[in-house]
Amino acid sequence: MDSRQNNDCLKKKESNRRQGKQCGRREFLSGALKAAALGSAAMVSGCGTGLLGSSEESALKWQEYFKKNYRLMTQEEKDETVARLERLAKLRKGVDIQMSSKEPVEDVLFGYAFNLTRCEGFMECVAACVKENNLDRKSQTQYIRIFEMEPGEMTPESGDGKYFHKVPVENHFYMGVQCFHCESAPCIKACPTKATWREPDGIVVVDYDWCIGCRYCMAACPYYGRRFNWNEPQVPVKEMTKKQHYLGNRMRGKGQVEKCTFCVQRSRAGRLPACVEACPTGARVFGNLLDPKSEIRFVLKEKKVFRLKEELGTDPKFWYFID
């Protein structure tokens, strides 16, 4: 990891703080409430730098704060929040992002298969995922983990998840683990604020703004599929993926849970998730489970497949196979 960039990022944040540009939700809310109590719209400036730009920012934040859960929004409301978030990104970081709230495609149910004989542990998928999904560079968040395994082992718990040497190593195989997008997902049931749910195309998503960071979902997930932001995620503006989706790779905040979304910003547009596209060995197969002519259906029909901890009844849409 490039620590220099991180340092830069930290410095920037520090200076922002000194200038009072950034403020947490709480300070903002109390500031805004005071202003409201005074009945003066002009004073709605949570952090109070008094600059014109900053008051626009505050107004946007204010509106963002009171928006609904994504699932309850009308298309109009979705468009509005997306527009606000785009503008906020511009005001805060000077980035031009394009955010989408593209709906699921009808007759699509996404599924994934992982070829254990093919994967060689190059970890191109992990790097591509970090980049595509704007994962925090400071704590080095990764959605995907690759385990180096001895023959005969079948659960990643016994594998080595932090190898760093030339790969592949003889007589070992590699197993990738990420969110399995279970049909009967325990994480969804565990969430007290309904901030996470299964979309009609089978993707399990999080409305980050409704996440209160209780991490019940993380405890409920038997696959270690979710990640928690202990700090404000930091992504150098130059490296940021600008094409974003509300339920996907938009920037998360501190104290919010996130996870693999099968790259919803890509998959709903017909593209392969970043990990699949980056894989140099073809170990990753992705497609529409409802389409009998898809590659994933071929794998399920022709290969010996299994799922992790199938006996738990979580019904993951992620299969492993050997050929």
């Binding site: 190059f122 970890m123 191109e124 790097a127 983990r145 030339k166 790969v167 270690y224």
Partner: peptide
Amino acid sequence: KRWPKTYSRPI
């Protein structure tokens, strides 16, 4: 054989 593109920190 080659070096992996990145590495993971312990969980």
